[in-house]
Simulated scan of single mutants.
Amino acid sequence: MTLTVKDLSGGYGQLTVIQNISFTIQPGELTAFIGLNGSGKSTTINHLIGLLAPKTGSIVLNDVSMVMDPIAYKKQIAYVPEQPVLYEELNLEEHIQFMINIYQLDSAETWEEAHRLLKIFRLDDKLNWFPTHFSKGMRQKVMIVMAFITNADLFIIDEPFLGLDVIAVNDLLALIDEKKAAGASFLITTHVMSTLRAHADKFIYLEDGQIAASGSMEEIKDQVPALLIGEADV
């Protein structure tokens, strides 16, 4: 799996938010997007998942272009948004079955994996619960389970640690490492590097809609505001 983003520029209507963004993500690689609010992280994500059309540039995943074949492109991606999006009329079991149907997954094998993940995130006794009964953190866990039961080549996760308790954060990081070892790739946005420091292969620092620095922690830390790194890492 290789994601190639080349000279990507775009935004909302006449407003250009990101300019000339170029990067690649290789199989089994985790790239972390960092930057202050308004730097262009979410706008870039919205282009990568197809919510926004590029003004210029290209997005290609496994030789499949977002513009030329958006359906085939999107089938390779699992996305976890910053704010959980669940259907209020569906219970947890129905949400999982919905994902199985959408991604055309093997039902028996996927349910076996779903039960494993539900147990990890302590949701295994809540299959009959509806979203109205879930806390913010529990909704986030549901979104994570729904994404991780897929066979996606690329996982795009926007601020995954917000709302999660410490145990859930560690469980998620373990699952990320597990998927990486199997060849899946990740693009994760975060405001603080320290949580991902031991797991990310590369950091991309966005500033004013452009890539201001990229590379390992050691390569970019002198170019990134200390508040993004954390006092312990400076």
Results as ranks from 00 to 15, higher is better:
56 T>P: 02
56 T>N: 09
56 T>R: 10
57 G>A: 10
57 G>D: 09
57 G>P: 09
57 G>N: 13
57 G>Q: 10
58 S>N: 07
58 S>M: 07
58 S>C: 04
58 S>R: 12
59 I>A: 02
59 I>V: 08
59 I>R: 07
59 I>N: 03
60 V>M: 03
60 V>F: 13
61 L>M: 03
61 L>K: 02
61 L>E: 01
61 L>V: 01
61 L>A: 00
61 L>T: 01
61 L>H: 03
62 N>V: 08
62 N>G: 09
62 N>A: 08
62 N>Q: 12
63 D>I: 00
63 D>M: 01
66 M>N: 05
66 M>R: 13
66 M>Q: 10
66 M>S: 14
67 V>N: 12
67 V>F: 14
67 V>R: 15
67 V>T: 10
67 V>A: 13
68 M>A: 12
68 M>W: 11
68 M>E: 15
68 M>F: 11
68 M>T: 12
69 D>W: 09
69 D>E: 05
69 D>T: 04
70 P>I: 09
70 P>T: 04
70 P>G: 06
70 P>N: 06
71 I>V: 14
71 I>D: 03
72 A>I: 13
72 A>G: 07
72 A>S: 15
73 Y>W: 07
73 Y>M: 04
73 Y>Q: 01
73 Y>V: 00
73 Y>E: 00
74 K>A: 10
75 K>Y: 11
76 Q>C: 11
76 Q>M: 12
76 Q>R: 15
76 Q>P: 06
76 Q>T: 07
77 I>K: 06
77 I>S: 00
77 I>Q: 04
77 I>E: 04
78 A>E: 05
78 A>C: 07
78 A>W: 12
78 A>M: 09
79 Y>F: 15
79 Y>P: 00
79 Y>T: 01
79 Y>K: 01
80 V>R: 00
80 V>L: 08
81 P>Y: 10
81 P>M: 06
81 P>V: 03
81 P>T: 03
81 P>W: 05
81 P>K: 04
82 E>Y: 03
82 E>M: 00
82 E>Q: 12
82 E>K: 00
83 Q>S: 10
83 Q>H: 13
83 Q>E: 13
84 P>E: 07
84 P>L: 11
84 P>W: 07
84 P>G: 09
85 V>D: 13
85 V>W: 11
85 V>M: 14
86 L>D: 05
86 L>G: 08
86 L>K: 02
86 L>C: 11
86 L>S: 07
87 Y>F: 15
87 Y>N: 11
87 Y>I: 05
87 Y>L: 12
88 E>H: 10
88 E>S: 10
88 E>N: 09
88 E>P: 03
